[in-house]
């Protein structure tokens, strides 16, 4: 993958995809999208970057070890659950500090809270997990003599 066009294109594609991923994550509660889809989009961005510039560059660009990202996501999701437990006495109950129905029953305010934190956790787990495996798979060496295992039975 040493195509100049491809490498140059990634300079635009990767940031755009990442922004898109965050947007998809944020709008997920009301429109198609959410943590899983956003996370996969972001992972795709990382994969594109990695294919264009190699594992080392991708790792440097990420700065954080991918599995750490995944772990942080899990911690965020659990924290969201504990938040609900503290607020409502039940693990994973949604907490909406700035959002809720007005007198007419229409929800208004800033839709951020434990649910968004949870979805962010999902997002991070997917990005971290997928890029972690991808990087390691890419780094895994090929032995000098590759056994030819052509099957014939």
């Amino acid at each position: 993958m040493n195509s100049l066009i491809y490498t140059t294109a990634t300079r635009i594609i990767v940031p755009v995809t990442l922004v898109l991923a965050v947007i998809v994550l944020l709008r997920g509660h009301n429109d198609p999208g959410g943590g899983f889809i956003g996370g996969l989009l972001a992972a795709l961005a990382v994969a594109i970057l990695e294919k264009a510039r190699g594992v080392d560059a991708a790792r440097a660009w990420l700065r954080v070890e991918p599995l750490t990202i995944a772990g942080a996501g899990l911690v965020a999701a659990i924290a969201a659950g504990l938040w609900g437990a503290l607020e409502h006495g039940m693990f994973l109950t949604g907490v909406w500090p700035f959002y809720g129905p007005n007198a007419a029953g229409v929800n208004e305010g800033v839709p951020a809270g434990s649910i968004l934190l949870f979805d962010l956790g999902v997002f991070l787990v997917v990005v971290g997990g997928v890029s972690g495996i991808l990087f390691t798979l890419e780094e895994a060496g090929v032995p000098a003599e590759q056994p030819d295992d052509e099957e014939d039975s």
Binding site: G28, H29, N30, D31, P32, G33, G34, G35, F36, G73, L74, A77, I78, A80, G81, F91, L92, G94, W96, Y99, G100, N107, P111, I115, F118, D119, G121, V122, V125, V126
Partner: peptide, 23 residues
């Protein structure tokens, strides 16, 4: 649950415990 995307609401709110297990 203050959400219009029912699938996502199920994932992150109604059945969030399942999702937690899955991630």
């Amino acid at each position: 649950a203050f959400g219009r995307n029912i699938v996502n609401v199920i994932l992150v709110d109604f059945r969030a415990l399942d999702t937690l297990g899955e991630i």
